[in-house]
Amino acid sequence: MAASPASGWRANIVLYAALAANLGIAVAKFVAAAITGSSSMLTEGVHSLVDSGNQGLLLYGQHRAKQPPDAEHPFGYGRELYFWAFVVAILIFGLGAGVSIYEGWKHVAAPEPLHNPLVNYIVLAVAVALEGTSWGIALKEFAAAKGEMGWWAAVRESKDPAAFIVLFEDSAALAGLFVAGIGIWASHHWGDPRIDGVASIAIGCILAAVAILLAREAKGLLIGERANPQVVACVWTILDREPRIMRVNHVRTIHTGPDRVFVAVSADFDDALTMGEGEALIERIEQELKAALPMLSSIYIRPEKAEDAPAIAAVG
């Protein structure tokens, strides 16, 4: 069944909320930077602009990932989302962190006095409110998705990068806003505009750390990660209780998208089975697996003697 517009909106509420917040904040930050000459405010504007582009790329990646399989891509386009998630990490590192550190260094080398810092404080307060709202939505959605799993374990096991990328981006944005606020206050209080440049460099370092973390997670998804252990265990349980399967040699899984899993099974079947009985058995097992695990988009079951698959069994 095709998703309705309402359900599509609900599924992407985290991305839409972050996109709306970042677009508004970026404009306000650039205006404030132009009025006051604040380096940290300028880099925060670049940060929000990059984040807006990132949310757009993730929305595009989600749209592309929903394309049905075709002759060129028989397992679908699900991994395209992982590609765009990796691009997002590169943009955060190259544009967000790179521009922030460069602008900060330039402001330290050739400091310019700040003008009317009150404008910066107003923009920062509004930005904290908007970013905080976006962050709260992302946190709530991710907490509901992770269940009883720990936060870091949930990030490592998550196969939907859009969920944790927005959460990490918003967390970095809030941290950057507080650093920018401290830098602007300290620069004005002590009359040293170089402090504002140092704050900009610190924001760049925060973004670089987040980008490296996101790139590592996106790389694993792009290369191909196994399904969650609970999914693999469920496949083993269903196969083990089948009396006509003498031994399961291995179960291999790989995510072809956030909610699509390819599973390959090697099993030693009862020698007494005829070819027709074996085909019927495999078809029944496939139906049972899909009923229990709807995310199994492709199932491959290979009858194979245990002694013929020792290396595979060792890996599995």
Results as ranks from 00 to 15, higher is better:
213 L>G: 02
267 A>S: 13
311 A>L: 13
164 F>Q: 06
86 F>V: 02
279 E>P: 00
167 L>D: 03
300 Y>C: 01
15 L>M: 04
77 Y>G: 06
84 W>E: 15
130 L>M: 08
264 A>Q: 10
244 R>D: 04
242 E>P: 04
298 S>L: 10
122 I>W: 01
59 L>S: 07
1 M>D: 11
59 L>N: 07
270 D>V: 07
81 L>R: 13
46 V>Q: 01
124 L>D: 00
34 A>T: 08
227 A>P: 02
311 A>V: 10
210 V>C: 10
267 A>K: 12
166 V>F: 01
303 P>T: 04
279 E>T: 03
226 R>K: 05
218 A>V: 07
39 S>T: 03
240 D>P: 07
17 A>R: 01
281 L>C: 13
10 R>H: 12
268 D>S: 14
21 A>H: 05
179 V>I: 15
217 E>F: 10
234 C>P: 01
125 A>V: 01
27 V>T: 14
145 A>W: 15
16 Y>I: 11
115 H>Q: 09
54 N>P: 12
18 A>D: 11
60 Y>I: 13
169 E>N: 13
267 A>Y: 14
121 Y>M: 15
276 G>Q: 10
156 R>H: 13
151 W>E: 07
253 T>L: 05
303 P>A: 05
240 D>L: 05
224 G>M: 02
9 W>S: 07
155 V>S: 06
110 A>I: 12
173 A>F: 01
220 G>A: 11
121 Y>H: 14
48 S>W: 00
231 V>P: 06
237 T>H: 05
273 L>K: 12
141 E>R: 13
169 E>P: 02
258 P>H: 06
181 G>E: 02
182 I>R: 04
109 A>N: 13
65 A>L: 11
37 G>A: 14
213 L>M: 07
96 G>C: 14
309 A>E: 05
88 V>M: 03
136 G>R: 15
104 G>R: 08
89 A>N: 14
256 T>F: 14
96 G>P: 07
29 K>P: 06
266 S>H: 10
62 Q>V: 08
189 H>I: 01
92 I>E: 08
59 L>H: 03
9 W>I: 13
163 A>V: 02
171 S>C: 09
